[in-house]
Write a protein that binds this DNA or RNA. Structure first.
Lengths: 234, 234
DNA sequence: CAAGACTGATTGTTAGACAATTTGCTGCGC
DNA sequence: GCGCAGCAAATTGTCTAACAATCAGTCTTG
């Protein structure tokens, strides 16, 4: 893993990690001056970095307004997974048609299983991302990979938010990944896509459930606060 | 159509138009200094613009090297259409499942037909882009639209190169568009996707044929030159 | 004739400046 | 007390100028 030669690249990676690791929480503001101060770079560089993070979906920004760390709502998560299925589905279909099982995918899958066994959520998330990226890259379409990269930043975001999530069953994730790989290997395009679809549906429902819990918790907090200080009600 | 409020936006649009209209030909170099001089903007602005054009696929650039206008080869066109089918296919499938015919799509289709009748190739290309964009946007997925935008720049490129192309049959394009819309309206998801697939396949084969002709022509030119000056070979 | 050094062009990054815009606050009138 | 105009601070958008790093071609030299 070589260090990025460009300052903008390095800064991008640094901030990206802080975001997906939850160090920079959703809704937090990120001014150009802040990056300038924290990393000792020129404002021009900071601006370029923010622009990239914005196109990657990790930040939201409109003209003349400060960039804020993306906070995905239920509808947006749903949209994200729809787009994800479109891209990964195309990749998996092609892989199955060619009976081409990318070595990187099986390697990543092994990492997932190992991380699950070790209860290492961070590593599991990374390996899961690597697995899906391997499927798409394995399809050998530069543009499909680019499109995938465009949305995987946001996907990573939903995983960062789930650091403390419960492990589903024993390891539904591992089994579902295996099902996809098996169908690909069998040359069963429709089956592979179907397996991918159910896998993504499960993943999404976990995210949505956690989102709903978080929203309920926040509501409860607000209510409690309101009861303690009724005058401050909107 | 409001003028872009940002200088970078305006510059981006201006250069983009010059590229897709063939004024800036494939392989041509675009330095930051050149934009600075031609448009009277700061180099910072020019650089930001070039970066955007690069992510849109209209330019190619590697670190420390001058950006050049993208020139698509046969393999890249094939890849482009594969990615395109993945995105537009997902959109059309969703539209059919909802039996949702976007008004913008039918409007764009009318424009296509009218442009075909008028033999106005430029307008036909624009309307065709608008039609496909309307299908995707009609699906209502922000991320799918973003991904589509990521590759439509390159698609536009292939159309700009075909300014002088022959009209296929009478208007296969119009009929194929109609077939897609009909299937969507009938709620026939599989049929709509299939219609889209054949449409895109035809479109691609036209582009590839033109590409092959151009390559053959270039070879012939090279050969003639070589015969006139044999010593300069290789 | 080939390998290496030099030169010009180009990009990457920084610093500082100013205009335009947004935002939060202040104070005014009601 | 409340809404609203306006002001001040913060922030972004763009520009100018400069220097270092890198690349492409040329030129020298053995």
């Amino acid at each position: 893993m070589l260090a990025p030669s460009s300052v903008v690249d390095a800064l991008y990676d640094a901030v990206r990690h802080r975001i997906v690791n939850g160090e920079l929480v959703g809704g937090e503001k990120l001014t150009e001056a802040r990056l300038t101060g924290e990393y000792g770079v020129a404002r021009t560089t900071a601006k370029a970095c923010l622009e990239r993070l914005t196109t990657a979906g990790l930040l939201r920004r409109t003209a003349h307004r400060t960039a804020v760390v993306t906070e995905l709502g239920a509808a947006e998560v749903s949209d994200l997974y729809f787009a994800r299925l479109a891209v990964e589905g195309a990749a998996v279909r092609r892989l199955a048609e060619r009976r081409d099982l990318p070595a990187t995918a099986t390697a990543a899958q092994a990492q997932v299983v190992s991380a699950v066994d070790a209860h290492d959520f961070r590593r599991q998330a990374e390996a899961d991302m690597a697995f899906h990226a391997a499927l798409v890259n394995g399809a050998g379409s530069e543009r499909l990979s680019r499109m995938h990269g465009l949305i995987m930043g946001e996907v990573h975001l939903t995983m960062g938010q789930s650091r403390a999530h419960l492990v589903p069953g024993r390891s539904a994730v591992g089994d579902e990944h295996d099902a996809i790989l098996a169908a690909v290997l069998a040359g069963d395009a429709a089956g592979a896509v179907a397996a991918l679809e159910t896998h993504l549906a499960h993943a999404q429902s976990r995210v949505q459930a956690r989102l709903a819990r978080a929203a309920a918790q926040q509501d409860a907090q607000q209510e409690a606060q309101q009861q303690a200080d009724p005058g401050a009600a909107n």
